[in-house]
Amino acid sequence: MKKIIVILCCVLCVENTFSQPIVKERKGNFRSHGNIAGGYLFQQKRAAAYITGDGDIFIDNHVALTGNLWFSVPLGKKYETGIKANHQFFGGVNYHILKQGRWDPYFGLTPGIGLVSAGYKIGEEIRRTKISPVPLASATIGCNYYIGSIFNFYMKLQGVTGQLLKDVPQAVPLHELKMTAGLGWNFKIPKMPNSKWM
């Protein structure tokens, strides 16, 4: 019980420290989340699962620098060939349509790099490529709903395209729609002295 009270006090302290919530002004805020996520690979016609995390730094009321990571989780041994690992990280810019308010719809351009491995068949033998880097093009749309100065609900869709070619007999397309939703958090970045950006 004591622990819970301490945690609650800490949360309230943080709330008071960063008193200017993201609802009033986006600039100078940081927003993030960590979650599990799903994806759908169009060419392979199959689902994919990820552990994901992202972070947005609002450098303007409308603009945020963004970065996100997707760590792929194997979905059983059902698929012996095709994509075996598909870890990805992206960086780019998001444009937030509304400069204040609880609702925060946005879209962004987020190119990235994939670390991909695929299984393939040579005769009866199944082989697997080493994990190799693959350039990826990607775009994002999403929406946040800020429920206070710390927490937010979010929903994000990310379209990704790319191709793996590493010893596989045929190029492995990585055309995919990823989706994630849940509870994120945000806080005001303490202002740096003489900072031009924040």
């Binding site: 780019g92 190119p111 990235g112 350039p135 093009a137 990607s138 775009a139």
Partner: peptide
């Protein structure tokens, strides 16, 4: 500072093998 996505629609005199790209 920014990021880009590129579509290459025309390759060596023919409309074939469109390419997709990314960069900054």
């Amino acid at each position: 500072l920014g990021v880009r996505s590129t579509l290459s629609t025309f390759d060596h005199g023919q409309w074939r093998n469109p390419g997709i790209g990314m960069g900054g």
